[in-house]
């Protein structure tokens, strides 16, 4: 059997033998994977994200020391063979705290975005598909939330909820929800105007079935891209809240909180400031690279 489609064969445009069939089906998962792999920056982002997740999950096995154990011989200790990233203000091993700190950063990024999507997606679907006063009410609420800058809303929410990592996640998730409501609504309205949705409606499908079977799968790519880029923003937000003392509480490690103490010892122990910042930067960069690559790979206009 030939690998080409009937039309390609009829027009003499059949792919040469041996070409994988997926090249003729630009919409498949395999084709998406191939387009993503063609972007080195996206692959680099994905690899760094993967390594950071492994580091967070296996932290207890990788970290050379207990991240909260103090050692008076290593107070603001310079980087050495025993402590490659040095020691902090009470002699804790900075490397171990960086490794464990990945849990707070990645955890906050993933949990807060999961919260934002699980609230924003249904509300956006409802607003976009139901229309009328429901749409009006949800859209006004979204506008009002978007009027308060993301980080300022997150700080205010965290301040009123009380300082803790869980509350920081809730604050960041709620602050990011409006973006997903607006995006989902716009996507739903675009897809709902398509002819295949009209056809599904004409065939007598109930609205919830149209929303779930016909609309939802078509808006997933846009949501996925936004979610990846929002994880990057959420990691910065968690670091910011922890830096201000509104996130992870001491002695538990968090990159943002480590920078907060490092600020006071800049002339004696600069390594305390370098590594946590570099870690935040790397994590955020990785999610941004991956998100940009994902967008390019999922964008139908880029398909050839």
């Amino acid at each position: 059997m030939s690998t080409g489609t009937p039309i390609a064969e009829a027009t003499g445009l059949a792919a040469p033998a041996g070409t994988p069939a997926l090249i003729q089906e630009p919409g498949t998962l395999a084709a998406f994977w191939r387009r993503l792999r063609a972007r080195p920056s996206a692959v680099a982002g994905l690899i760094i994200v993967g390594l950071l997740i492994l580091m967070a999950v296996f932290a207890p096995w990788i970290a050379p020391y207990d991240p909260t154990a103090t050692d008076w011989g290593n107070v603001r200790g310079a980087p050495s063979l025993a402590h490659p990233f040095g020691g902090d203000e009470v002699g804790r091993d900075v490397l171990s705290r960086i490794i464990f700190g990945a849990r707070a950063s990645l955890g906050a990024g993933l949990v807060s975005v999961a919260l934002a999507v699980s609230l924003g997606l249904p509300l956006g679907l409802l607003a976009g598909y139901a229309g009328g006063w429901i749409d009006g009410a949800i859209s006004r609420l979204t506008d009002a939330l978007l009027a308060i800058p993301f980080l300022i809303l997150a700080i205010a929410l965290a301040a009123f909820l009380g300082p803790s990592l869980v509350n920081a996640m809730i604050a960041i998730g709620l602050s990011a929800t409006s973006t997903f409501i607006r995006l989902t609504r716009a996507q739903v309205r675009a897809v709902a105007a398509e002819e295949f949705v009209e056809a599904a409606r004409a065939m007598g499908n109930p609205p919830w079935r149209i929303a779930r079977v016909h609309i939802l799968p078509n808006i997933v790519p846009a949501i996925l891209v936004q979610a990846t880029l929002t994880i990057a923003a959420a990691i910065i937000a968690e670091a910011s809240l922890s830096f201000l003392g509104l996130g992870q509480q001491p002695p538990e490690p968090s990159w943002g909180a480590m920078l907060n103490t490092a600020k006071n010892f800049m002339d004696e122990a600069p390594w305390m400031a370098i590594w946590p910042g570099l870690s935040i930067f790397l994590a955020v960069l990785a999610f941004n690279l991956f998100g940009d690559g994902l967008r390019d790979a999922l964008d139908p206009r880029q398909r050839t």
Binding site: A232, A239, A262, V284
Partner: peptide, 16 residues
């Protein structure tokens, strides 16, 4: 991309 990814409080600390 660097500008979007670097946390501004860290950049501040580095500049100081």
């Amino acid at each position: 991309l660097w500008g979007l990814s670097v946390p501004n409080f860290w950049l501040g600390i580095l500049l100081i």
